[in-house]
Nucleic acid binder design. Structure first.
Lengths: 276, 276
DNA sequence: CGTTTGTTTGAGGAGCGTCAATAAGTGTGG
DNA sequence: CCACACTTATTGACGCTCCTCAAACAAACG
């Protein structure tokens, strides 16, 4: 599979690569050696980015190709290794971003060092849109959960974009609204549900947002540690480990180091609803 | 004091009343018999609402009087008794609102009946701005914590407002951003801090947002029950009651039924920071 | 003056965090 | 290729917070 990808890429060249990356975006991204090669290219901005990169995405869906061309010409693209920060809480919010490939965690840190994961960002989503909310600093840190590539624009372009491009503002605020709803959802869970339900719900959320099928079940498409899950649910890695062990014995999940697959999602839904 | 208010109102008539309500808005609203009388008037829409009602408020601060006149002419005003819902979670988001006087709680309810208070809304703030985020239903319930009065407009006007009035969109999204930040703050607290700190922080937030000075300390300007506080902090009314009792013995707070005053805010800050 | 709503306080126990020790997997350098 | 450091995961023992259950009291309200 991987070998085939490489050969195709080398033979057909960059135009196919662009198509391939584009094709991957709307569905769940499946980073392979193929896309990673493209990432290297995009990293240097060598090939002009293709319009098809953005055509399917909500903020740009109503735009014509020339407009998308304008937008892309003003974008910088960059690759980030796993575990690096795209921007940090409190820093000047001078750019806004679009995740092309990979996965991000949005993280807040407390004064005494505890951190919690507020939400995850999947390919195709805008992030770091503090400028849209008239903030001059980012309210949270964006950290890559896997190797990622993102476009970015200077913050001052936000007002140009919303003014010039029909539907850009509309669609952007729509995703913002969804994100707000999601955080509220997490908040109520955190406040009312027992740890077991919260962990089950967190797993389900990741699986729904970025699950990919394997032969035995659905696996989360980016590396996750027990510690990560405890940061999402406000508990400790020990408790998460115990829960996962017990679920593995019951045949609900399978997991190895940094990899978790859900084999019986239905059962997990039952647990998250309290009928465990 | 109250008697004086009534006399003044009856003598001077409605034009002064409007001024009075306006004057109260930018600072902390101090609902008295005087404003309540006005509320009755506004309730029936009898006197045309005065432009000065909106002049000081962020979303309208950059507008000229004729523009504000236009906006007001399209508004409905209504009074709500304490404990009634302005709108409910899941209902059609057909209007957006501005709180003129009173206090609101934004509440989410879980399937099994638990509810949590996501945030409070103070006079002068927009709320129910689901239309701005392209939502067709409200994501939460808005319930009055005290007798309140609010203006509202049909959702379809939102796009008109943002298009026609300079700074309206900017300022609205700014408050939205602040609100998002506040929810994230609450989320991290909920996930990382012990109950005692969360309750202390919740008290401080209410005091900062809507505290009014009394001779012994600063009191929260709207009715709050132990149950309410437990809904904000994800605990039980019993635990809150125990905490308040203990703080009262230490001289940090004073409280009677539905009324809480903080007499030693500094001490409360220490507790919320973990140096209790 | 009875009813409703809000508050206080106690007793008991479970959930889950803390402490601790070990093991398994991963990457690095010689 | 092995030795070593480091990260991640597992599991047990212990005990403190804080929830649950229960009962009585106080304030508001018609």
């Amino acid at each position: 599979m991987i070998a085939a990808d490489i050969i195709i890429i080398l033979n057909i060249g960059t135009s196919f690569l662009r198509f391939r990356l584009f094709r991957l975006l709307p569905v769940c991204s499946n980073p392979s050696i193929g896309t990673l090669l493209l990432l290297k290219l995009a990293d240097r901005n060598l090939p002009k980015l293709d319009e098809s990169l953005l055509t399917g995405l909500p903020p740009f869906s109503r735009l014509e190709r020339p407009q998308i061309r304008e937008i892309l010409d003003q974008a910088s693209s960059r690759r980030y290794d796993e575990g690096t920060a795209v921007f940090r809480e409190g820093h000047d919010a001078d750019r806004f971003f679009l995740l092309l490939d990979g996965y991000l965690r949005v993280i807040r840190t407390t004064p005494d060092g505890d951190q919690i994961i507020v939400l995850h960002i999947s390919p195709g989503q805008l992030f770091g849109i503090a400028p849209a909310l008239q903030r001059d600093t980012y309210p949270a840190t964006a950290m890559t959960a896997a190797e990622s590539i993102a476009l970015s624009w200077p913050a001052r372009l936000w007002s140009d974009f919303t003014a010039s491009y029909d539907g850009f503002a509309t669609e952007s605020y729509k995703t913002l609204g969804q994100r707000l709803g999601q955080i509220q959802q997490t908040l109520t869970e955190m406040a009312t549900q027992a740890v077991e339900k919260r962990v089950a719900a967190a797993l389900l959320r990741m699986v729904n947002q970025s699950g990919r099928k394997t032969d035995t079940g659905i696996e989360i498409a980016f590396p996750v540690t027990r510690q990560n899950i405890s940061d999402m649910t406000g508990t400790t890695l020990h408790t998460v480990s115990r829960l996962l062990s017990s679920w593995e014995k019951q045949g609900i999940v399978e997991s190895t180091r940094k990899r978790i697959a859900v084999t019986d999602p239905h059962q997990l839904v039952l647990i998250s609803n309290g009928n465990g």
